[in-house]
Simulated assay, not measured.
Amino acid sequence: MSAVSTPPDAPGPGAAQPPGRRDAEATKAAILHAARHLLARQAHADLTLKAVAERAGVSAPLVVKYFGNKDALFARVMSFEEDARALLDAPPAELGRHMVRHVLVSQRERGADPVLRIAFAPLHGEHGDVLRANFRAQVTERLAARLTGPDPAVRAELAVAALLGLGVMFGIARGAALRAMPVEDVVDRYGPTVQAHLDGPAPRPPSEPAGK
C-alpha cells in the first residue's frame, strides 16, 4: 500500500486519541453507517435525520452538529471518494487481490461495502443520478486512469463488476459457504478473477501465413 503522510500535529499510529475526539469519531462513524443502511432500503425522499439518529443511537441534533442538514449528510454518503482511495490503494499488479480483501474485510469488520451502495441507485430518482455520477468519476474512471494498455475503461468496469458481484453474494445474498471461508482463501480464489479483468486479455499470437 502507498504511504500516507501524517500531519505534524497528528498523533502517531500507536498514540491514543483524547477521549472526546475518539468518541466524536465513533459517533460520526455510527451516523454514516446508519445513513448507509437506510440509503440501501428507502428512497431518498423518505429518509429523515430522525430515522438516521434512531438507527445510530444518537439524537437528531447531534447528527445536525456533525453533518449539517439531510442533504449534506447524504451527499457525504453518496460520495465514494474516501472508499475509493482505500479500495485502490495498491500497486496495479496486486490490485485485484487488494480490492477483494478490502471488500471482505470492510463487510466483516465494519458491516459496510465500499462500493455496493451503487446497486441501490434506482431507489433514489435524481439523487440516484448523483450516486451514479460519483461512482463513475470516483471509482471506475479513477481505476481506469491507473491502467495501461488498450481498453482501460472496459477493463476497469469489468473488474468493478466482478467486485460488485462478490459484494452482493457476501453481503446481500449472504452466501453461507462464502461467508464461512477465511478471507485469504477467498482472496486466493477470487483475486485472480478481478486481476484478469484489470490486466486485460493476453495478446493473440500472430496468425500463421496462409498455406501452412
Rank of each mutant, 00 (worst) to 15 (best):
159 A>H: 09
68 G>R: 05
77 V>W: 03
175 G>A: 07
39 L>T: 07
43 A>I: 00
8 P>C: 01
82 E>K: 12
208 E>I: 05
160 V>M: 03
186 V>L: 09
65 K>Q: 14
185 D>P: 05
31 I>F: 01
68 G>E: 00
75 A>Q: 14
136 R>A: 14
137 A>G: 12
65 K>S: 12
124 H>P: 00
185 D>V: 05
198 L>K: 13
47 L>Y: 01
207 S>Y: 08
97 R>H: 13
177 A>T: 12
74 F>L: 01
42 Q>E: 15
93 A>W: 05
63 V>M: 03
192 P>H: 09
197 H>L: 11
57 G>F: 07
186 V>Q: 10
112 A>N: 09
1 M>H: 13
42 Q>P: 00
126 E>L: 08
24 A>R: 15
13 P>Q: 03
134 N>F: 00
196 A>D: 15
167 G>M: 06
93 A>C: 09
81 E>Y: 08
103 V>T: 11
151 D>V: 06
4 V>H: 14
148 T>Y: 00
143 L>F: 04
75 A>D: 15
140 T>K: 01
212 K>V: 08
36 R>A: 09
73 L>W: 03
123 L>M: 04
57 G>M: 05
171 G>I: 01
194 V>W: 11
106 S>R: 11
135 F>T: 04
72 A>Q: 15
17 Q>H: 08
109 E>I: 06
50 K>R: 13
66 Y>M: 09
63 V>E: 01
82 E>Q: 13
194 V>L: 14
110 R>W: 08
131 L>Q: 12
39 L>V: 02
167 G>A: 12
56 A>L: 08
120 F>P: 07
80 F>W: 03
46 D>W: 00
183 V>T: 15
5 S>C: 02
157 E>W: 07
55 R>M: 11
22 R>Y: 01
66 Y>W: 10
150 P>S: 06
71 D>N: 14
75 A>S: 15
193 T>K: 12
211 G>W: 03
12 G>S: 06
178 L>D: 09
83 D>W: 07
14 G>R: 05
146 R>H: 04
52 V>F: 00
31 I>D: 02
181 M>E: 14
103 V>H: 12
169 M>R: 15
157 E>D: 15
44 H>K: 04
92 P>R: 07
96 G>K: 08
194 V>H: 14
35 A>P: 04
151 D>L: 06
93 A>I: 05
129 D>Y: 04
116 L>P: 14
200 G>D: 07
180 A>W: 06
176 A>Y: 04
63 V>Y: 07
145 A>T: 02
114 P>A: 03
188 D>Y: 04
48 T>E: 02
5 S>A: 11
172 I>A: 12
186 V>D: 11
138 Q>Y: 10
197 H>S: 15
160 V>C: 04
111 G>E: 06
125 G>D: 14
128 G>L: 00
11 P>Y: 01
19 P>K: 00
199 D>Y: 05
199 D>F: 06
60 A>V: 08
174 R>T: 12
189 R>E: 13
178 L>P: 11
15 A>Y: 03
141 E>V: 02
94 E>N: 10
1 M>P: 15
79 S>W: 05
96 G>L: 04
159 A>S: 10
38 L>D: 12
156 A>Q: 07
195 Q>P: 12
105 V>R: 14
132 R>E: 11
62 L>N: 10
3 A>G: 14
41 R>S: 13
13 P>T: 01
160 V>K: 02
188 D>Q: 13
123 L>V: 02
171 G>R: 01
33 H>T: 15
98 H>P: 06
177 A>G: 13
